[in-house]
Every structure is written in structure tokens, then in C-alpha cells.
Design a binder for these strands. Structure first.
Lengths: 347, 347
DNA sequence: CTGTTAGCGCATTCAA
DNA sequence: TTGAATGCGCTAACAG
């Protein structure tokens, strides 16, 4: 690395002071005479000056950087959120430090510490631990953050929620409205509160329509299997479906806890030569892009990932600027995306 | 934000100097008496000290941060690369500043500038412009970077390549070996050199087997359409396939320039009730996860994305530490992933 | 309008 | 082994 050009050298070469150089080069609105201004700019260009933000950041105590901690960028749901976050961060002059927690609480915690040390101005987090002591403490110490998809109890911090229970209810009601009464539920572990809520919505819809839940049709993997690998959701959907198909009586529709799981369900059904939706209907949850790509295209619940990212980031930055209330709870509403994986049942 | 605890306050409370405090708290190997050391650590804990990395970074001129510029995290190929990068960055104590260029040269350029200003120690970039003046200049000024998937001419910088031409050749030869002679090529614009290479490999394989290329079966979209949106590759594959199907004579196999495009091809074929692979075979390129999910599962060329990310990051960090040659060119080799989208043709 | 000066928080000479 | 002093590059009082 060559030595860096600093404002000091510019000042010297332009016969002025570092203060004035700083004023013009940092786009301050402080008055500087036009001649001096252009001269400084000219010299800066000649010297190929690149401002060192570390200096400014240390002085102004403003890193213009936010941290994002999510389970894995490999999951399309999160990559879409991150894209939304980055989009508004960029527009508002911030940069994004990305951290994948890989669903590991220890990793999440160490990232959390490192980000704070790096002086991020704020944090958007989809935490893996529901009761994160460290997060709570950092929050009390003044760290601004917004939480995605979870309740951080005992703290006034902004949160972006999605109405999971209503979503589960909505998906199930949709199936019922299409004439289905024999409905299975296939899910990865209910370790996250969000999934638990979806399941509650499922149960409520059945109850409301006086449908008895068939225990054998509720396939939820045990949590030990969760950490296996990236492809977990898909494989899990496939596996649970094969178990489901061992039953004597089969459901007419399957509600999968997310789209990746739904793809696993569809794969298994297709391999067993069961027609979708003619023999068994499938409904997913998330509305990731691939729902359109798969055949038949997947009917699902829209979870506005990109929008969630945008909202979260705007909320966070508003908060930093004191333009928003300290603690905002946004609850996004579910919506059915009708495609081709659910059949209308004739009685 | 509360006021931060600094080493100064710790020094005061521990009856010592900032120098000593710094020495123990920054894990320096500078000798400090055990008593003082434990005392300082105790006080630091009491005061809930959080080191301010901006101070250290400014002093040591080492941000421990690398920048990553890729087209879009939304593309599974890139999200996998980024995951690989972040994985080794973390292990080696670095953080990742993520930038999505959205295939916009202007955006890419402004990110480039901002990253340099933020003093990133290195950069991994999959650039959209093949001849990036700014990148060249920054390289000359001492910025360390490794380029993915492209040649940055006229500069000694490390690059991770994939043997695209051989890959194109391999895929085509595979189809030929399975008895196909009527092979179509469906691609997004050949604006990137990588795609151009794939096409050359395709042509070479045909030539070698004395197969005349049918012009009508080469469907390559014009570049103006490229920037439309996230879903471009998929839609493009679908659209070009519909054009392809208008021909009098149809091919027995389609080679798509990447998996997303291949999914579009498959979708269109399925919608037109053309059986894959019985009537038309499809081969993709990338080996993204969803190739397993789609039905039939997609035969494709493996491009080791996660591995590329890991390699790129290790290379970059080795370079920063002077542990690697200035300029390394790695060329990764293609491999066929056999699945179920290609039929064996009987003569 | 311009320049002088004093730090931001930290690591590192240099002397003791 | 310790501490005083300096400065990384920049911005912000303050005084002119």
C-alpha cells in the first residue's frame, strides 16, 4: 500500500488550512469562497485524494454502517430481506456489514460483540435465541436495533412482525374453502415462535370448521435434526411426506410450514406418482421466487420479504435520526398467492 | 447513546496508564506484570468496556474488513459465493461489507469508491464492466482484490476463474455422447466473457463431432433486455424456448447457459406439454441447489460456488498478509452432475 | 470567510 | 515492566 494523501498535504499544496480543505471536501455547507473551493478541489483531484472515512468516523462518532445478522444468506427468504435492507441503506448513505449466524447462538453472540465494537450505528437481527441476554444488555446501553420475526421480551426496541397465526389460519381456511377437510400439516421443528404460531392458526381454522385434527397427519420433525445442513427444509419435507404416505387414509391437501418444505413435499409426491393437485393439493408459506418455477407452480402465503427488509432498514435509520418513535411494532399481514398447486374439491 | 468507556477511564480507575491498558486489552504480547494485567481486566469488565475499533483501525491502518461486490445476493449462485467468503473471513477475523451492484456499472463504481474510502483491506468483486478503469487505477494504487469470473486485463491481480469453455464443451459432449445431435443453445446475452466462452465450448464440441450448428436453434437474447429485473434469467429462458418451439424442426436437447435459464426452459416445455427428457432433454449450468428440487431434477455442470467463495477469500487474505504471490490465477474445472433431465437417445 | 487548535480512541515509540 | 508523549486523518469550536 502506498502512503495515503491526506487533507494536510492538500492544504499545503493549496496554501490553505486543513480546516478549509475539510470544509470543502466533506461537502459541509460552511461558507468557503468560490476561488478557494475550486482550487482545493483541483488540487485534491491532482493528488488523487481519497478521503479516509476512519478519521471522519472517529471524529464524528458515526460509522454510517449498520449490521445485519440473519441465519443464512443461502435461504432465499433472507437473501431477499438483505437485498431490501441494503437497498434503503444505500439510498440513505449507509453500508451493510453482513453476518450469517448459521443458526448458532454462539456465533450470533460473537458477531453481535464484534459489530458493536466496530461501532455500527444500528442492527437488524433475526435472532436464533429467543431470549438474548446480550442483545437486551446492548439495547439498554443504547444500541439501536430492529428485530425481525421474533419478540425480544422486556425491551423497548422496534420489531417487524408478520402475523403468523393469521397466516396459518388463512392458508388452512383457504384449503377448507376449496372443499378440503382432510388436511395434513408438514413442518420443521416448532422451535421458532413463528412456526408455533402458524401451527396454532392451522389448528384454529380446523376447530372453527369443526374438523377433527388427524394426529397422524401432523408431521413435525424433532428438533435434533435441524442443524444438519443447508438443504434441511427440503429434505425434511420430503422425508415427512414419505412418512405421511404410509398412513392408511391419506389427506387431500398438505399445508407445509414454508416453501422449501413444500418443495420437498411436492418432490416426494411426484416421485410416488401422486398427481398435484389432482390427488393431493399442496400449499406453502413464504412466497419465494421458486414457487413460480416449480411445476405445478406453488400456491402459497406471501410473506413480503423484500418489503420487510426495506421497512426494517427505514425504521432503523429513522430511529437513529430520532425521526421515529423509540419502539415501533409493525405487524405485516398475510396474503394468499393463488397458483396451481391446490385443487377445488367436488363433494 | 451513552458515552463510551475508553481506555483512559480504565487507566484512571486502575491507577495505571493508557499504554498499559492498551497492551493488555488489545492482546498484545508486550510484557505486563500478571497483577496489573488481571487488575486491568477486572476494571474493564466492571466498567463494561467495549473497545472502539475505529480508534484502533485509524491508528493501525487496518480495518479488518473486506468488501464484496456482486451482481445480486438474490441469485443463489452468488449467495453461495458470499457465504463461502464470509465463512473464511470470519475464521480469519475479518468482516464483510456486502454490496449488490444490481448489474449497474454506475452503482458498482460508486460502491467501489465508498469501499476504498472505508479503508477495506481488500476486495472481492464480480464486476459487471469488463474493463473497469476505476478498478485498474485502484489496483495500481495498492488496493488488493481478487476478481471472480472475469479477466481484468492489464493488471496483476488475483483471479478465480472457471474453465467456461471446457465446461461448455463438456456439457455439449455429454449430450452428444447420449446420442443427441440436434442440440439447441439458449442463453442470456453474451455480454459477460464467461458466457461467451461457454458458447465457444458449445460450438467446438459440435465442430469436433461434425455436427452443423442450426442457427435457428441458437437463441440468445439481446442485451437491452438484461436489466429488466431479478427474475430475468428465468423469464428469458421461458421466452426464448417459446421462440425455439416455433421452428419447424425441433432439437432433441437444449443446453441452457445457466440453471435459472434452464428452469425457464423446463417451465415452457412443461406448459407446452412437452415431456422432459422423453421428448426434449435439458442440461443446465451452475448446479444451484434448486436443480435437485425441480422435477425432473436437472442435469447440469457443477460450478463450485461455495468453494469459489472460500478460495477467493483465502487468496485475498493471504495476499494481504504477503503470504501469497501477488497475482494468482486459479482455474477451476467443470464437472457433470448427472440427474434426470437428459435422455439417452436410441438411434 | 479563513486559520489555529484541540481532540475522537487507540497503539506505539521512547525513556525511564 | 511501566508511563508520557505523539499522532493516525479528520472535524469542529473558536478566534480572527
Amino acid at each position: 500500500m502506498k502512503k495515503h494523501v491526506t487533507i494536510y498535504e492538500i492544504a499545503k499544496k493549496a496554501n490553505t488550512s486543513t480546516a478549509t480543505v475539510s470544509r470543502v471536501l466533506s461537502n459541509s455547507d460552511y461558507p468557503v469562497s468560490p476561488e478557494l473551493r475550486t482550487k482545493i478541489q483541483k488540487v485534491a483531484k491532482e493528488l488523487n485524494y481519497i478521503p479516509n472515512m476512519l478519521g471522519r468516523q472517529l471524529k464524528t462518532n458515526n460509522s454510517m454502517t449498520i449490521g445485519v445478522i440473519i441465519p443464512s444468506i443461502t435461504n432465499p427468504f433472507y437473501s431477499s430481506i438483505v437485498l431490501g435492507i441494503e437497498e434503503v441503506a444505500r439510498k440513505r448513505g449507509y453500508h451493510v456489514l453482513l453476518c450469517n449466524s448459521h443458526r448458532s447462538p454462539k456465533l450470533e453472540e460473537s458477531y453481535l460483540n464484534e459489530l458493536v465494537q466496530k461501532q455500527v450505528k444500528g442492527l437488524i437481527i433475526s435472532s436464533i435465541s429467543q431470549n438474548n441476554k446480550l442483545l437486551l444488555q446492548l439495547g439498554k446501553n443504547g444500541l439501536n436495533f430492529v428485530a425481525l420475526d421474533q419478540s425480544v421480551d422486556g425491551l423497548t426496541s422496534s420489531q417487524i412482525h408478520f402475523d403468523y397465526k393469521k397466516a396459518g389460519y388463512l392458508a388452512t381456511s383457504y384449503l377448507i374453502a376449496k372443499g378440503h377437510r382432510d388436511i395434513a400439516f408438514v413442518s420443521s421443528p416448532l422451535s421458532r415462535p413463528s412456526r408455533q404460531k402458524v401451527y396454532e392458526g392451522f389448528q384454529e381454522a380446523l376447530r372453527e370448521h369443526e374438523i377433527d385434527m388427524e394426529e397422524n397427519w401432523v408431521q413435525i420433525s424433532s428438533s435434533e435434526e435441524e442443524h444438519s445442513n443447508e438443504n434441511f427444509e427440503f429434505k425434511n419435507g420430503k422425508l415427512l411426506t414419505s412418512k405421511l404416505l404410509e398412513q392408511d387414509k391419506l389427506p387431500t391437501a398438505i399445508f407445509a410450514c414454508n416453501d422449501m418444505t413444500a418443495f420437498g413435499v411436492m418432490k416426494e409426491l411426484t416421485e410416488k406418482a401422486i398427481k398435484i393437485p389432482d390427488e393431493i393439493s399442496v400449499i406453502g408459506f413464504d412466497n419465494i421466487e421458486f414457487g413460480n418455477i416449480v411445476t405445478p407452480s406453488l400456491t402459497t402465503i406471501n410473506q413480503p420479504d423484500h418489503e420487510m427488509g426495506r421497512l426494517a432498514c427505514n425504521l432503523l435509520l429513522d430511529q437513529l435520526n430520532g425521526e421515529a418513535a423509540e419502539s415501533v411494532d409493525m405487524i405485516l399481514q398475510p396474503k394468499i398467492i393463488e397458483r396451481n398447486s391446490v385443487a377445488v374439491l367436488k363433494n
